[in-house]
Design a protein around this nucleic acid. Structure first.
Lengths: 206, 206
DNA sequence: CCGTTCTTTGAACACCGTTCATTTACTGGT
DNA sequence: ACCAGTAAATGAACGGTGTTCAAAGAACGG
């Protein structure tokens, strides 16, 4: 009797449709413009129906958040295949910045709105998208160290967190503050190069 | 006839009181919890009265934003007196991070909420708090270059923007994402040191 | 004391997220 | 074919939001 299966399928489909439309609204007008009533209108159901599929508005945000992070991870993965660690750092960094600028509202949702959403993504086991993404970046410095190319005392985790913070700074500043002159890609290049090689031609005070 | 002066003074006082209470609410429960109705209740006026002093809710936010940035500038200024540029970079960076973590809701308002607010602060003449703050930071690299301690081709403005982005990344990540292990101050130290000196003990691939 | 001007407000409008009793649709069993 | 029971959907309401505006109130100058 495939009848309850069909029901289950229809239920899942509606859930997907809600998320699809919700995502559209967020992408187009920002998270704050995601209204349960408008969303219900758009999927042609009564507002109350949404609550049969999601606990509340935040639950929808959470789901969008999780999926968004999945896409970010997917955007980072190709770069992780680059063998030379420093080149890998550049490629992955560029991919990160590119993702942020191309999906501003998704990025905002993931990293700039609700602390609860952002924090969750980085917890929950090492198989979550958060830890996995971070792992890809940390790998750069682990590889450098195990190849003896940076000091043993260097902490790959700390370096990775620093780089992530730097990249996040570039993206989030570009998303909120149009006043900065330098392009995101130039900032990313400067950040990476300078973090790796230091200030160009630095001499000590005399 | 000091009567109209008194009226003007009372008007300004009420405006101040509104801002004071608004600030309290934002600091305590975040910007989204700043409600015109609750604010009116708190200052013991009808909601409509608020609109005689501010165009709308956003205007209040803007004012808080401007003042907040003024405080950030004030927090940076002492460090700007340090003569050794690299030490100055450390001190000012630490002050920046400290300010962000100690005034999370103010920092959010300034840099993470509405792009219009953030962008404004960095425009409007070189005497605005934005350009002045940025100038203090850029000065570090200008001084280094004019002392011949970094390459002539190095662009102080670009380096300053990169550092600012990095610091902002640290603060904003700490404000939204509790999952990062390294403390903000350690991240700041690592960022600064690595940007200046490069990866510790870096050797080229062989 | 009156008329004018400035201040303040109550009431309304159009939204919002969320809940719940009620209705509707559908299915399995008789 | 009908009925009972279950699952899905909803209308209406609650309490909240920012904002507007005509009306009421207070304070002043003549």
């Amino acid at each position: 009797m495939g009848i309850s299966e069909r029901k289950e399928r229809q239920r899942a489909e509606l859930r997907e449709q809600i998320l699809r439309v919700a995502r559209e609204m967020v992408v187009k007008e920002g998270f704050s413009a995601l209204s349960m009533r408008k969303l219900a209108e758009a999927v042609e159901y009564a507002p109350a129906t949404l609550y049969l599929h999601f606990e509340n508005r935040e639950a929808i945000a959470r789901e969008l958040c999780v999926r968004g992070f999945g896409e970010l991870l997917a955007a980072l993965e190709p770069g992780a295949a680059v063998t030379e660690p420093l080149e890998r750092l550049s490629v992955m960094g560029a991919a990160y910045v590119k993702f942020g600028l191309e999906h501003p509202e998704t990025y905002r949702l993931i990293f700039m709105e609700d602390p609860r959403l952002s924090t969750e993504l980085f917890q929950g086991g090492p198989d979550g998208a958060g830890p996995r993404s971070f792992g890809l970046l940390a790998r750069v410095f682990e590889d450098l160290r195990s190849a003896g190319r940076i000091a043993d005392k260097a902490d790959p985790g700390r370096l990775a967190e620093t780089v992530w913070a730097g990249l996040h700074g570039i993206v989030s500043l570009k998303l909120t503050c149009a006043a900065f002159r330098t392009s995101a890609e130039e900032l990313r290049e400067t950040l990476t190069q300078t973090l790796v090689h230091g200030l160009p031609g630095l001499k000590p005070a005399r």
